[in-house]
Amino acid sequence: MDVRDKVIKIIADQAMIEPSDVTDDSTLEDLGIDSLGLVESIFAIEEEFDIQIPFNANEPSESDFDITNVGAIVAGIRKLVAEQTS
């Protein structure tokens, strides 16, 4: 599984839907993931990739991590994973 598949699996698990129902354009709101669910997903992603995501639950929009939609999240994770291995 590449980064995208792993991230989508985590998000789908959180939303209790099939990974095939998650697209790059899906927003977390579309998927029914609330703020607590988002924090839990961030935790699961950090555990999966052993990375630190710069995410502040107080002000998600001010974080250096784009959560606009699934595509943006996957891109952000790819970048963090690449930085970590470089």
């Binding site: 607590l36 839990e40 961030i42 935790f43």
Partner: peptide, 8 residues
């Protein structure tokens, strides 16, 4: 020795 705990 983990440095991260579950958010809940």
């Amino acid at each position: 020795g983990k440095n991260r705990v579950h958010p809940f």
